[in-house]
Design a protein around this nucleic acid. Sequence first.
DNA 1: AGCCTAGGGATTGTTCAACAATCCTGCAAG
DNA 2: CTTGCAGGATTGTTGAACAATCCCTAGGCT
Lengths: 249, 249
Amino acid sequence: MTTGGAEETGRQAWLRTVAADVARLDRSSSAERAADILRRSITEGALPPGAQLSEVELTEVLEVSRNTLREAFRLLTHEGLLVYKLHRGVFVPELDEHDVIDLYRLRRVLEVDVVRGLAERDPELPASRLEPLHDDVEVAEAAARADRWPAVGTANMRFHQHLIGLADSSRMDAMTGRLLAELRLLFHVIATPRELHEPYIERNRGLLELLEARKYEQTASDLHQYLLDSEQGILAAFLDKGLRQPAAT
Amino acid sequence: MTTGGAEETGRQAWLRTVAADVARLDRSSSAERAADILRRSITEGALPPGAQLSEVELTEVLEVSRNTLREAFRLLTHEGLLVYKLHRGVFVPELDEHDVIDLYRLRRVLEVDVVRGLAERDPELPASRLEPLHDDVEVAEAAARADRWPAVGTANMRFHQHLIGLADSSRMDAMTGRLLAELRLLFHVIATPRELHEPYIERNRGLLELLEARKYEQTASDLHQYLLDSEQGILAAFLDKGLRQPAAT
DNA sequence: AGCCTAGGGATTGTTCAACAATCCTGCAAG
DNA sequence: CTTGCAGGATTGTTGAACAATCCCTAGGCT
């Protein structure tokens, strides 16, 4: 602000990078750090749906106070990764078919709208904006070659998160983050992640190529069908699981 | 699940009503009660955008501990009604034109999709589902006759909340609640609420009549234009305010 | 004068220990 | 088999305390 100079833009960019690093390390400290650890444990399956998170237990493991831990719980609660039950504690939520349908309905609405919206502002959209999507596709392909299917799922989800990011809407980004986090909860009840994720590596690349060719309308159309197929895949896996192991409700 | 009976549906409905009442009275107690009070203060304008909420000050007024108050802050933070600034406290957010555009983009996407989606499940949608919308319109008309324009704004927003409710999507409901809460923050920077809300009383009734006539496609089309107009109205009022009182940034 | 730097005071971030309220479990009684 | 009642465990909430950080002002420097 105070130092006006010719290299302003260069310096500001540099400062911003440092600031981002500092913010990443510093952050709201304890509460968010604890939330980060728990978030990973949940999304990676260490804490399965239905599990209860005991306060005293976690205060010892995470080495934070009960109050701070509760703040971490609140953070994750509003990401949809935990649910509070009054006087009973926090639990990893158990989603059902109805949630699958709900989640995919929103995914379709948001993602398809983002792609359709790109057509109207095509000129101002530099090609470099597609680079994150490109990286995600390559990461997914590499993970597939290494037979690391959960990693494929993660990369595919990042692809969609970055796709939403093209809309430059902070609220859409936040909503999508929440939706995908909930979706990840669903993946853990599925026995065969390969069948679930494999087809979409190629389809993601297909979407990316359509975007690069600026064929937005066809991208939107393909994406719509893509999401319908993905929903059916999860519902099928879900139904299969439900038959083998009847609902505990 | 376990007790099969002929009156099952009747009894379940009754039990659900009681359960809802209990939940309303009991709740998470202190933290959520404090959050309720603060929420009203913010949405009704007692706490204007930019205001800081002092912890010690509010602990005395709300008669809760600092830790509990902080939990209330977290709740409101994730509704978009407060923002945390590390080591500086919580503030009522100040939204700008960019936020208006962002909010309305999402409103259009969600609401229009809900209406379009109604066409596909028209048979299973009893007419009674439209009653809440009907009530909202009448409340708005009554408030307008009494010159209570903020109340008109509230009723109009409930109309849209109930409209989204027709989709039976808990996540859409939650998102809409958040979006409308943020929108309410914007209303407080507008000098003349009458011009802002009055036109939409009649337009809401128009939408309702189209819905009752099951003309979903035209409803969606009208709603789209409706939201574009509303966005323009707020942007205009915003620009007007910006000219009289340059940004404090 | 203008700018950088240091110190004081206030506010937030976090911890700890304690108590009240609620839930779950198991067991006894009808 | 259901109902009612301890007992123990867990959560909800409080209050005080300390550390860390920010804001503002005062003072020294060029």
